[in-house]
Amino acid sequence: MQIQVNGEQREVPEGTTVRALVEQFNMKPEKVAIELNRRLVKSDRYDAPLKEGDQIEIVTFVGGGS
């Protein structure tokens, strides 16, 4: 199925979860924030399957500022 990740179209297998998607990018779900269709996803929803056309943004932590 087609979904959008960080603004780009991607083909992922049916049943792909938020957690699996984040791990595909070599990131730990505990260290990023996930936005799904403009709402923040709580971590207890990370194992729910994504749907066709979902828009996902993986938001990394930024630590600089000096």
Binding site: K28, E30, K31, V32, A33, L40, S43, F61, V62, G63, G64, G65, S66
Partner: peptide, 25 residues
């Protein structure tokens, strides 16, 4: 409202993130 750990539960490890000193700003 959510606190920092609600959003980013685990802090990055030391040296894991780029900083202004390493990649600029």
């Amino acid at each position: 409202t959510p606190c920092l750990r609600c959003i980013f539960p685990e802090p990055p490890a030391a040296g894991e993130l780029p900083t202004c000193d390493t990649v600029g700003v």
